[in-house]
């Protein structure tokens, strides 16, 4: 009886151990991107851009060309690559500190210019690599090392909903939010990511998928409790689903 492999490491991921903390769902979104590249046959003409953040070492994990970008500037670097080589598939893989804070201008303008790139935006409501500081996406009352008594919305405002914010731009785009906290949502997020890359492959529009993600280490709770925390706290505030499609209506 022949043995059929039904699940294995995608070719677009290198056979290396990733440095992410135990239970950190970055590893899942890495795999989803890699699976999308494999299934769409894009790996060999893809260039990724990993800016500063937990995912800065992504170039060690993906089996495709990569740029390491300075903090917040991945959408600009990706613009440079895509404009130089429109035939290549270009994606950025960014965290919430990188994209929603220092890189806000870059992401808004890349989206507004309609750069034909794909942005994988991992939102775990905290700065991971630097040790758990408050991010623009940190929840009200959530404790972080720079808001030790919990985020005070009078002082630091409310968390930014990037998918909605970018969807307000007029330039056509595919913008959606998924989550990595449950098998079902992982499967649905994979579909969103794949669709984002398809839009790029067809040269249709800018695409961004926001992935709600956990950070057990800096949230200070176990990986499995983190999934529950995400579900109870982040999900209500960051509703999942497709926010914008180039066709204009909820396709």
């Amino acid at each position: 009886m022949s043995e059929l492999t039904v699940f294995k490491r995608p070719e677009a991921l290198l056979p290396v151990t990733m440095h992410y903390c135990p239970g950190c769902t970055h590893g899942i979104s890495h795999r989803l991107v890699a699976e999308a590249l494999d299934e769409l046959g894009l790996r060999e003409r893809t260039v990724g851009v990993a800016p500063v953040g937990c995912s800065v070492l992504a170039y060690d994990y993906f089996n495709c060309d990569f740029h390491e970008a300075s903090h917040g500037r991945a959408p600009a670097v990706a613009t440079g690559i895509k404009r130089a080589r429109p035939d290549l598939i270009v994606f950025t893989y960014q965290g919430d500190g990188d994209l929603a804070s220092i890189g806000m201008a870059e992401i808004v303008h890349a989206a507004n210019r309609g750069e034909k790139i794909t942005v994988i935006f991992v939102n775990n409501a905290i700065y991971g690599m630097t040790g758990g500081q408050m991010a623009p996406t940190t929840m009200p009352g959530q404790v972080a090392t720079t808001c030790p008594l919990g985020r005070d919305t009078n002082l630091a405002g409310f968390p930014i909903r990037m998918a909605e914010l970018l969807s307000a731009l007029v330039t056509p785009a595919f913008i959606a939010r998924g989550s990595l906290h449950s098998p079902l949502e992982v499967v649905k997020t994979k579909a969103l990511i794949k669709r984002a890359f398809q839009y790029q492959r067809e040269g249709t529009c800018f695409s961004l998928v926001e992935c709600l993600s956990t950070c057990p280490t800096n949230w200070g709770i176990t990986p499995t409790d983190s999934l529950k925390w995400l579900e109870e706290n982040m999900l209500p505030y960051y509703p999942l689903g497709i926010k914008k499609t180039p066709e204009g209506k909820e396709a």
Binding site: L4, T5, F7, R9, H26, R31, S182
Partner: peptide
């Protein structure tokens, strides 16, 4: 396999 963050689990089937 789907929820493993480290791609540590692979699956094969017979039949």
């Amino acid at each position: 396999c789907i929820v493993c963050p480290d791609v540590a689990i692979e699956m094969a089937v017979q039949g």
